[in-house]
Structures are given as structure tokens and as C-alpha cells.
């Protein structure tokens, strides 16, 4: 693998890591581990932890995939590996 491609792969991996950390934080963090603490905070009729579990996580998941798509499309062009 050329040096350029190794760099491309590394940047892909670090982007992935960041997004997966967010993925884990909203679902396993906000919605499960810290649900009781967050439930003490309310937004309208929603206890926050409950909202993350039933709405917030799902919305964040969708955003994460689109962010990955846009960042990777840019990265592909930058390293000239796009189709």
C-alpha cells in the first residue's frame, strides 16, 4: 500500500472512531448507563434519559451516517481514490 493510501486509511479510521464514540455515548451512555441521572432533567413532557432512548439515539444515528458519507466523499477526492 502506498504511503498516500496508508494516510487515507488512517484518516478514515480516525473519523470512524470519533463517530463510533458518539454512537456509543448517546445509546449506551445517555440512554442506558446514565438514564436515571438524565431522567431528573426534563424537556417539556420528556424525562431526558427516556427521550434519548426513544427518540434522541435514533436521530443521532441517522446524522452519524450522513456525516460519514459527506466526510468520506471529500476524503476520497482528496486522496484521489474516488470512483
Amino acid at each position: 500500500m502506498s504511503k498516500n493510501l496508508q494516510e487515507y486509511w488512517k484518516r478514515n479510521l480516525s473519523l470512524m472512531t470519533v463517530l463510533l464514540v458518539i454512537w456509543a455515548l448517546v445509546s449506551y451512555g445517555c440512554s442506558i448507563l446514565f438514564v436515571d441521572q438524565l431522567n431528573a432533567i426534563r424537556i417539556g413532557g420528556f424525562p431526558l434519559g427516556f427521550w434519548f432512548a426513544q427518540q434522541g439515539s435514533e436521530i443521532v444515528f441517522v446524522c452519524l451516517i450522513f456525516i460519514y458519507y459527506f466526510r468520506m466523499s471529500k476524503l476520497d477526492k482528496e486522496y484521489d481514490v474516488h470512483e
Binding site: 463517530l19 432512548a53 426513544q54 444515528f61 451516517i65
Partner: peptide, 23 residues
Amino acid sequence: YTGSIYLMGWTGGYVLLALLLAP
């Protein structure tokens, strides 16, 4: 609340698919 396991479980996998497998 416990029903959220299905909501998160059956959507969160797509993040893994999109980042780790599909491309």
C-alpha cells in the same frame, strides 16, 4: 422505557453497517 432496547437495537446496527461493513 425498557422497550427502547428494540428501538435502539434495531436502528443502531445501521451505523455499524455504514461505517464498518457496507462500503
